[in-house]
Amino acid sequence: MRLASTKSVTPGMILAQSIYNENGVVLIQKGLKLTEKMLGRLLNQGITYIYIEDEFTEDIYVEPVLSDKLRVDASKTIKDIFLELRESGLKERAYILEKKGKKLASVVERIMEDIKSSEKSLSMLTEIFITDDYIFHHSLNVTIYSLAIGVEMNLSNKKLTEIGIGAMLHDIGKIFIDPEILQKPDKLSVEEFEIIKEHTTMGFDFLRKSADMPAVVSHCAYQHHERLDGSGYPRGIKGDEIHTYAKLIGIADVFDAVTSNRVYRDAMLPHEGLEIIYAGAINLFEKNMVEAFKRSIVVYPVGLSLQLSDGREGVVVRQNKHICDRPVIRIMSEDGKHMRTPYELDLASVINVTVTAVITD
């Protein structure tokens, strides 16, 4: 299979990776020939990249980050908590969070164990979902990325659990924001953006009143948009004034936001999202956390077509753990000529060859 821009896929091509909703239900089964109607629906849902079958890459297989059962359990837990809180009165909310707290911690611990036991780096692009509410999907992705950074930094299980719960609930304040503003498909006005920014304070005020939540969890909600140079919100605090967990979750939050499929804009590919994080590695984000994040994720996902500095082109077939910007490439063409017998090139062992472009059509 190879990864292609949905806009470049033509009717008749065969889907190589099933597309799901957040409940794990298959919406479009792999192996189906894609029709113009299907492709239009995917684009309307904000799905900008899909996997398609290709005779030269038919042996390439992409493994999910989490097991299907764990992803469904985690998505359901987040969705249940957010929806119950959104639809409940003030007096009921503290009880709901208390009731769901143990389930939340259990899901975080399961995700943490999956990440620790995996020999592979994270690539969320391999799991293509259509969801009615971005917040649930985003909260899970931010949890996964945050835990991956924490694991790479060798943090204790206690700290990882706190980070995981903080990441799952970092956007909890959005349940108090008008859904019409949250789900607006167009650019927000200045006034609307100011309302959105209030989710940090609202989340903090709600979580700090819960006796069963660690105090640091409320600070994750409060500070995940703060930045080292004081340019963040809601308080514009700087450096060590920002809680370590919030700094870490802030990196995961930005990366997932720019690499996720959204109706109003195309998702960036991981290498593009990482460039944004690196651009802020001095003024906005802790450099050691950015480096840990880079070691944790896949920069060029399996199935992605790349152009190399020596003119060769190929498809990513495998990753090199901890050097994720130097994958193994199956070379498909040299000097503009298609190879009759493709061969593999390990970029980790060839230091004078670099990736110069990503090919998505």
Rank of each mutant, 00 (worst) to 15 (best):
R2E: 10
S5Q: 09
S5G: 08
T6L: 03
S8V: 06
S8G: 05
T10N: 14
P11H: 04
Q29P: 11
K30W: 04
K30E: 13
K33N: 15
L42Q: 01
L42P: 00
S67C: 03
R71W: 01
A74G: 00
T77Y: 01
I81F: 02
F82I: 09
L83H: 06
E87L: 13
E87D: 15
I96N: 00
L104H: 04
S106L: 13
S123M: 08
M124V: 14
I128P: 03
I135Q: 04
S146Q: 00
V151S: 08
N154G: 05
K158P: 08
K158M: 12
F176R: 06
I177K: 00
I177F: 05
R208F: 06
K209E: 12
M213E: 00
P214E: 08
E226Q: 12
E226R: 11
D229N: 15
P234L: 10
P234A: 04
I249F: 04
R262C: 09
E272R: 11
E272G: 08
E272A: 11
G273S: 00
L274R: 00
K287A: 10
V290W: 05
V299K: 05
Y300F: 15
G303Q: 07
S305K: 14
S309C: 09
H322M: 07
H322G: 04
I323E: 05
C324F: 04
I331C: 02
M332Y: 09
S333M: 11
E334R: 14
D335H: 14
T341W: 10
I351N: 11
N352I: 04
